[in-house]
Amino acid sequence: MERALRDKKAILFFVLPALIWFVAIALLPVLQSVRYSLLKWDGITQGKYVGLANYTELLGDGLFWNALWHSLILAGASVFIQLPISMLLAMILVNGVKGETLYRNIFFVPVIISSSVIANLWMKVYHPSYGLLNTLLGNLGLTAWQHEWLGSTDSALIACFVPMVWQYIGYHMLLYYSSAKAISEDILEAARVDGANKRQMVFSIIIPQIVPMIKASVIFAIIGSLKSFDMIQILTKGGPVHASEVPSLMMYINIFTTRRYGYASAIAIFIIVECLVFTLLVQRVFGRWQND
């Protein structure tokens, strides 16, 4: 058996297909992106090495800061609006409500639907003349509030964010709910014996127990926001006049519209570095919190 488990040929047979596939399709292309980001290149003629010029241009590009700012607002909205709603729902459900499973399943339904369907549906919700939103406002006698949600610079960004927050409330709820359900009965029983009330139960027992899951969910919410693409690409294409542009969309436009491959690659590299930095940052913040 020892010999069979050291058999070089067998090891290669088991590990090489996955390793080659992964390295060739996921890992090496990242390095390729790094190389492209140092070029001035339209994808047709020979690329020209320009050093860090794309990155310095990026940092001085008002449109990029605009897009980056939008993705950060989305991250903020996810963490400070979406996650608290998810947490509230999870804590109510965990508390044992009649129809607990039904509610949980209903809240979760939008999560499994593709963002392309959700985006196209919300496009109809926002339709200026016949959309669900303006129709509802009209029925409520709030015609003054009716608005061209996706077509106005003052509302396009928010209008793109609402369906994203809406779609994933159920996901984060599920994460909190399932980790709260996994808390051992001993801990809960001990707290009950000590006479903890509902509020104390949630804040002093359950939430501290699920901090690792909260950390994971904050990281998912932030990274998902920084990389957001699908919903905005369908709803507004970043418009009107860049009002809802985000970095991924800017990268896409730089590849397929203006054909600035080098610049687009610099944006791609910026996005993954940014995501890494935020992941480490969140881990540090939570590390502090857990140590307190």
Binding site: A18, L19, F22, V23, I25, A26, L27, L28, P29, V30, Q32, S33, Y36, I223, K227, F229, S248, M251, Y252, I255, Y261, A264, S265, A268, I269, I271, I272, C275, L276, T279
Partner: peptide, 17 residues
């Protein structure tokens, strides 16, 4: 090496691929 993949995103490989 496989775990590094957890930190990658499609954005970073879209153009090269």
């Amino acid at each position: 090496i496989f775990l590094v993949g957890m930190m990658l995103s499609v954005q970073a490989v879209m153009l090269p691929l």
